[in-house]
């Protein structure tokens, strides 16, 4: 049996689903960010697997950019969490419902 790209893709899909579930059920924004990281990693994996299968370096380049964006997102997101925690007692995502219609 050979490990084809499909295996990696299935792994990627599983990882993505777990990340999505986590994002939906967790209330701690930090953990939610981690779930987003999981999903991004799943996408990274699929990029690299596709790149490998097509023999194209572009897949890895995309991962590079995703990494940068993820880093930026985490920086800003965590800064937001810190800023919110300064004003409020609790920092679960459900507490922040000022935008309720």
């Amino acid at each position: 049996m050979e490990i084809t790209a499909n295996w990696y893709l299935i792994l990627s899909a599983a990882l993505f689903s777990i990340g999505a579930i986590g994002l939906l059920i967790r209330r701690n924004p930090l953990v939610m960010f981690m779930c987003v990281e999981l999903m991004l990693n799943a996408v990274n994996l699929s990029f690299v697997a596709f790149g490998d299968r097509l023999g194209d370096i572009a897949g890895q380049v995309s991962v590079f950019f995703v990494l940068v964006v993820a880093a930026a997102e985490v920086v800003v997101g965590l800064a937001l969490v810190v800023a919110i925690s300064r004003r409020r007692a609790t920092t679960t995502a459900d507490d922040l419902s000022v935008l309720r219609g």
Binding site: L23, L24, D94, L96
Partner: peptide, 18 residues
């Protein structure tokens, strides 16, 4: 009426996106 769909909870919006 449409206002009621806006709960202000980020996880509800995440459900919508998903």
């Amino acid at each position: 009426s449409a206002r009621r769909t806006q709960t202000g909870l980020v996880r509800t919006y995440a459900v919508g996106v998903a």
